[in-house]
């Protein structure tokens, strides 16, 4: 498989990279982990004139927690870094659950969370996770930085709101106000397969009551789905069989799956329902165990 001809640049600073993107005039693509872009190049589904490789730019491969609890993930932080992260395993259960389910170990060694958000594949796992967490993307352009909520960052299949000379430099999970809980479940035919369906749930509780909830759905629509109504059904009350059932019903209604070789639309909707119930029931069970 031989890609079309392209120019390759590997700048050493963000300013240079942004400059190159501007001169590329919309025909340039940023190369970070390359786990989606390179296959597209080989298949000639993508034929950019310029590749701007950001791997030589220092200071982008971090993930950390600010003192207030905000989690920041740099543009060159690999999935494998997140999979092994004690930051996530000790404090961010939704992300910790998703990290080992991203693609396969080989992809996880190279691919990046920020790159996955930019790629905006409706079957991408991180977009649902970040949607559930109310995260945002920090984009840097010639005029400085701006912050875009993930739910608005992705506009459709393989589409995001970045300007042609903007680079997504960081993903941010806002500091929680209560106790966090959550999970991510994904049905795949095989390790490394795209999700038949996936569900990300993130909640915050204060005492018995849920103070914030987010539910993101993977692979059951033209883009990542923010199941707003399902999440709302959980807020302001304790978790119960009744509220779990309502949230699951509403999440299944929010799904817009299509029948394909991974499964029927009806089945995928059923899986969304099942996974919402499973994630929330496990939260209830572990709370009961702790009590």
């Amino acid at each position: 498989m031989y890609p079309s001809r392209f120019r390759y640049e590997a700048p050493r600073s963000l300013d240079q990279a942004i400059d190159l993107l501007r001169t590329g005039g919309g025909e340039a693509k940023v190369l970070a982990g390359g786990q989606s872009l390179v296959p597209l190049l080989k298949l000639r589904f993508a034929a950019p004139e310029l590749l701007v490789d950001i791997n030589n730019i220092p200071g982008l491969d971090y993930h950390r927690v600010d003192p207030d609890g905000t989690i920041r993930i740099g543009a060159l932080c690999r999935h494998a870094d997140l999979e092994r992260s004690t930051v996530l395993s000790s404090g961010q259960p939704t992300m910790a659950a998703a990290a080992p389910l991203i693609a396969d170990p080989i992809v996880r060694n190279r691919g990046t969370l920020v790159g996955s958000l930019c790629h905006a594949d409706p079957q991408g796992d991180w977009a649902s996770v970040m949607t559930a967490l109310g995260g945002h993307v920090v984009a840097q352009g010639a005029d400085g930085r701006r912050s875009i909520p993930v739910a608005q960052f992705v506009t459709g299949p393989f589409q995001n709101v970045l300007a042609i000379d903007e680079i997504a430099v960081e993903a941010v999970v806002p500091a929680p106000k209560g106790t966090v809980a959550g999970g991510y479940l994904k049905l795949e035919r095989r390790v490394g397969d795209f999700a038949t369906a996936g569900v990300a749930v993130a909640i915050e509780t204060s005492g018995e009551l849920i103070t914030r909830a987010g539910i993101g759905l993977t692979g059951v629509g033209g883009a990542t789905i923010d199941a707003v109504d399902a999440a709302k059904a959980l807020v302001g009350r304790p978790l119960s069989a009744e509220s779990i059932g309502q949230a699951a019903d509403l999440a299944a209604q929010a799904a817009r799956p299509r029948t394909d070789h991974r499964g029927s639309a009806e089945y995928k909707r059923h899986i969304v329902h099942t996974f919402v119930v499973r994630i929330l029931s496990r939260i209830t069970e572990s709370a009961e165990r702790a009590a």
Partner: peptide
């Protein structure tokens, strides 16, 4: 025997 076939 994909899961959706078994389920249906």
């Amino acid at each position: 025997l994909l899961p959706d076939r078994v389920w249906s």
